[in-house]
């Protein structure tokens, strides 16, 4: 039975318990989005949370960022890697922690499988952004990590809607997105974008997440969404985690056009993309630690 899209929007607007990021992250996003903020202010704020500092340092020193010399303090991390990378790292740890908290019940999705796919997509999206010189590689990573959080919101807050969707996927072999659009008149990318707007994430990330399924919907700035689109599909093909359905969606030709490539590039791309996914495994430790806490 179809649900009125307005009802879903209304529910999302009024769900008081929509996941919230820790308050320190809200302040950090404000600082990181403010061009007038100084590295010192950002470093001081992160350093005031010891647990967060330790996580950030572990990630920036992991193969994911490939720094040659060990980064010992948050100040160094901000100076050496830049605002954009630190924002990406802080957000990644915080979002994973928020969604793997003990009070978040496990619905249809297995947390470990979900985050394995999300982290893989983040790394693969970053690899596409870097390879095709889209720029904004950290935004590609963040958007890739968050591309599926709409599924977690549905699973957590609208479980009856999610059950209807999964019934269509499992019993009628419908692609997940088609099932979502049939049941609620929108897909999980729209739900995710709604949450990210609430979190006041930069518009460029919100748009990339919102359009990563139907890339042809954002002709004015399709490159970042295209990186996430291809990152998602390559991660599924390579078999990292679960995206909520066993099938791999078709690649939208608009994504290939936006990056100026065609399918003959795939044999060259697959190995570096896979290598980058493996380098991001440090983030999986946080997902697993949260899920088992």
């Amino acid at each position: 039975m179809a649900v009125d899209p307005a009802k879903i929007e209304n529910m999302l607007t009024n769900v008081e318990e929509l996941p919230t990021l820790p308050s320190i992250i809200g302040r950090l996003i404000e600082l990181l989005n403010d061009e007038r903020s100084q590295a010192k202010q950002i470093a001081e704020l992160i350093s005031s949370d010891q647990a967060l500092s330790a996580k950030v340092l572990k990630i920036v020193n992991s193969p994911l960022y490939g720094v040659s010399k060990k980064i010992g303090t948050i100040s160094q991390a901000v100076v050496i890697l830049g605002y954009s990378t630190v924002r990406s790292v802080v957000l990644s740890t915080s979002v994973i922690e928020t969604f793997t908290r003990k009070d978040i019940h496990e619905g249809y999705f297995n947390a470990s499988e979900f985050w394995t796919h999300a982290i893989g997509t983040a790394a693969a999206s970053r690899a596409f952004a870097r390879t095709y010189e889209v720029g904004r590689v950290d935004d590609a990573f963040t958007a890739g990590l968050l591309h599926g959080v709409g599924l977690l919101v549905l699973d957590q807050y609208l479980p009856d809607v999610m059950a209807q969707i999964q019934e269509l996927v499992e019993l009628e072999d419908l692609p997940l997105v088609e099932a979502e659009e049939e049941v609620m008149g929108m897909n999980h990318a729209r739900v995710a974008a709604r949450l990210l707007e609430e979190w006041k994430l930069p518009e460029i990330i919100v748009k990339a997440v919102a359009n990563h399924i139907h890339v042809d919907n954002c002709p004015d700035d399709p490159q970042l969404a295209s990186c996430v689109h291809l990152g998602d599909i390559f991660t599924r093909a390579l078999g990292y985690g679960s995206a909520g359905e066993p099938t791999v969606p078709a690649i939208n030709s608009a994504a290939l056009m936006a990056l100026g490539i065609d399918h003959t590039a795939f044999p060259v791309l697959i190995e570096p993309v896979d290598r980058d996914i493996q380098k991001a495994s440090v983030l999986l430790e946080f997902a697993r630690a949260g899920a088992s806490a």
């Binding site: 093909a237 390579l238 690649i251 399918h263 044999p267 896979d274």
Partner: peptide, 29 residues
């Protein structure tokens, strides 16, 4: 692995782009 990919790609018969991704992934894995 091949069984997983056969299921994953079963909707894409005749799609040249997806055929290339399937072949690339099978060969690589």
């Amino acid at each position: 692995m091949q069984e997983r990919l056969n299921l994953g790609f079963h909707r894409h018969e005749g799609n040249v782009t997806m055929a290339m991704l399937y072949k690339t992934t099978v060969d690589y894995l």
